[in-house]
Computed example of a mutant assay.
Amino acid sequence: MTSLMKGVLRGMAAGAAGTTALNATTEADMAIRGRPASGTPTAVAGALTDRAGVRLPGGELEQANRLEGLGALSGTFTGMAVGAVAGALRAAGIRLPAVIGGPLLGAAAMAASDLPIARLGISDPRAWTGTDWASDAIPHLVYGITTHSALRAMFRADEERMALRQPAPDRPSRGALMRAAALGAATGCRSSAGLSALALRSRRYYPGLSGRLSHPAVKALNGLFTVAEMGIDKLPSVPPRTSPQGLAPRVALAAVAARAMARRDGIRSGPPVVLAAAAATASAAAGVRLRAAAADRMGSDLPGALAEDATAALLGQVGAAR
């Protein structure tokens, strides 16, 4: 069996687990709030059979029961299909941390469910209330987290074996140098961004600092520090990052992140460390200029600061990839 097919099958199993969690969350909501079951899946099944020109056998009651069954089956199929795509992507080497992968899978399943509703004219999501959106979004978020967790557990043994068998190259590849530069640039924007990204992607079997970053408490501490830094960065009293007291920690943390990445990947750490330090220096200076230009154009520093937050997060994820 090819690795891609194995990923698809594992994804379908993970999607089935996620669908079960979604259904349980929806049923719990019905029990707590006393609301009726949604008739939307049945309405979608009815609209699709009408468009296809298919007449279900049986009388009116039997047809209604069949439509209800088809609506439930379509939800299960959607959950397994989204899981199958996620499994194929993971088999291809795309691995996202849980804080990103879980919500992303939930959003994909939610879009796959809600788009047909809108296209068939059964309901208009633009007219939904906040309670309606919560009733839809929360179960799908539970689906995404469950599916991602199940998929990661299924692949964990294979990934551990691959990490142990992978030969250590003598010198860093071009991709490794690009990742080091991305980690450095992220750290130049936000001093904790590089290490936080590595912590999110770390596994307990990784060597060196990357393995120690995998501890849940360390991950939580890194995340809190990053969130705090993003808030403090927007205060006018913060010293300029290009000053010695602002630049030195960024360069040092960029070097630490690059060395941890190099140790994790089994490559020489010298070139990645130098490149990350240079990238941190350059991005710190560029960030000051770009935010000043954005503040002049928009009349506020906040839009530029938020854009820099997003850039640091994206660069960190790129740099921490394996």
Rank of each mutant, 00 (worst) to 15 (best):
L213F: 06
G287I: 00
M12E: 12
I232L: 14
R165H: 13
T146V: 13
V238T: 05
R66K: 08
D233Q: 11
W133E: 12
L221F: 08
L213C: 06
P57V: 00
T42V: 00
R289L: 12
A279E: 02
A98Q: 13
S243Y: 05
P240S: 11
A112C: 10
A284R: 03
G53L: 02
F77K: 05
A88E: 03
D50C: 03
G75M: 03
A181K: 01
S202K: 05
L306V: 14
W128V: 05
A118R: 14
G18S: 11
P249C: 08
E308V: 12
R241C: 01
G231Q: 09
S202W: 04
E159P: 05
L9Q: 11
P36E: 00
G319Q: 03
L104M: 13
G246P: 08
A262E: 02
S283D: 11
T146R: 03
M261V: 04
L302D: 12
L314M: 09
P169V: 07
D29E: 13
Y143G: 13
V256P: 08
L4F: 13
A286F: 07
A254T: 07
R201E: 09
P116G: 10
G39H: 02
T26A: 12
T49G: 05
V218D: 03
T129R: 07
G304A: 09
R90A: 11
F77M: 12
L104V: 09
T281I: 03
L177F: 04
G266A: 12
R165Y: 09
E62A: 15
G87T: 06
G144P: 00
P239Q: 07
A81R: 04
L290V: 15
G71A: 04
G188I: 09
G69V: 00
L314E: 08
D136Q: 14
A286G: 14
S196K: 10
L183M: 05
R322P: 15
V142E: 02
I122S: 03
P272E: 12
A43R: 07
R90D: 06
A217T: 13
I232V: 15
P167V: 04
A293I: 11
A88N: 01
A127V: 07
V8A: 15
L4V: 14
A157P: 10
S149E: 10
R55E: 15
R161H: 12
P216Q: 08
G211F: 01
A150G: 10
R241H: 05
V142I: 09
R51M: 11
H215G: 13
A248G: 05
G69F: 00
W128H: 12
A81N: 08
G101S: 14
M30T: 03
Q245G: 10
G46N: 02
P36R: 07
A305T: 10
A228T: 10
A321K: 06
A43I: 00
R152T: 15
V288C: 12
A180W: 00
D158K: 03
R297T: 13
F225M: 15
P244S: 04
R201N: 13
D296A: 14
I122G: 05
L177Y: 03
V273Y: 08
A312D: 07
